[in-house]
Write a protein that binds this DNA or RNA. Sequence first.
DNA 1: TTATAATTCTACCTGTAAGTAGTATTTGGA
DNA 2: TCCAAATACTACTTACAGGTAGAATTATAA
Lengths: 137, 137
Amino acid sequence: MQLSKTSQYAIRILAYMADKKDSQLINAAELAETLYIPYKFLTKIMTELVKVDLVTSIRGREGGYKLKKEISDIMINDILDLFNDSIKDEQCVLGIGFCNGLCKCALHDQWMKPKFLLQKMFRESSLEDIAGRGCKK
Amino acid sequence: MQLSKTSQYAIRILAYMADKKDSQLINAAELAETLYIPYKFLTKIMTELVKVDLVTSIRGREGGYKLKKEISDIMINDILDLFNDSIKDEQCVLGIGFCNGLCKCALHDQWMKPKFLLQKMFRESSLEDIAGRGCKK
DNA sequence: TTATAATTCTACCTGTAAGTAGTATTTGGA
DNA sequence: TCCAAATACTACTTACAGGTAGAATTATAA
Ligand code: SF4
Ligand code: SF4
């Protein structure tokens, strides 16, 4: 009942970058050290974030990364989607599937509300919302 | 953002057993076929359920399993706990940890409510509550 | 021009959840 | 008694997320 490490790392990375001034480049070593994420794993994630155009990379000496979009335009849910970690409407709390209407267990209706809240939280929270709160570690 | 297969299977197994008459023995083959759970994996789970006294097993020919407790006394959360799958109070949605009070991100407060609802759902739903709803597959 | 610091690529290793195989043990019925 | 049907035990295999290694590429500063 948790997000994947990859998603967690990606959110923390992007939230940290959102804290920085727009034009400032941040390199992989700084991110890895500050956020306690294994360097090699982090670079793998960064490359992915570059590929989907969330982040711009500058290669070579004095290079680094910076966010490509406005921080108010990057939603947590977008990040989760990258790693297939967002909550789908039809997702069953028991992982069984879509027991539509006629056949539903007692958990079904109870699951609706927390599911909705989680979806809402992920969809409506942008990097702007979670930046600047000092929760880095 | 899902329960482990093992937890899911355990819940389905116990919910199915809860549907049956008290005294009726159910064997592993029936459970595996009915619930579409790999036989060998199922027996492994059953042995675990026997060890923690949720289920009684009768070995030998004409043997099988039956629930050991009243179905109103077995909470979903008890099952999740067996496989370390229940939601802890301090569990962070980002898997970071307990950024207590002073240092909290914007997700923190939003996570509180769905977390609480999930915990409540798991803690207050018994097998009795989810039995007899015909959601077997 | 060259050394260096950075990202990127390809490939591999590791740990854990999920699943499988085979054998031992137990027990009732023919 | 002996076979068959059931659970229990031990050990292995598979799949995948998480993590690592090293070389290739890129670009700047000196
Ligand atoms: S009825 Fe229960 S098992 Fe079926 S999809 Fe809904 S929550 Fe899952
Ligand atoms: S403040 Fe944010 S990162 Fe820290 S424990 Fe709460 S939800 Fe997790």
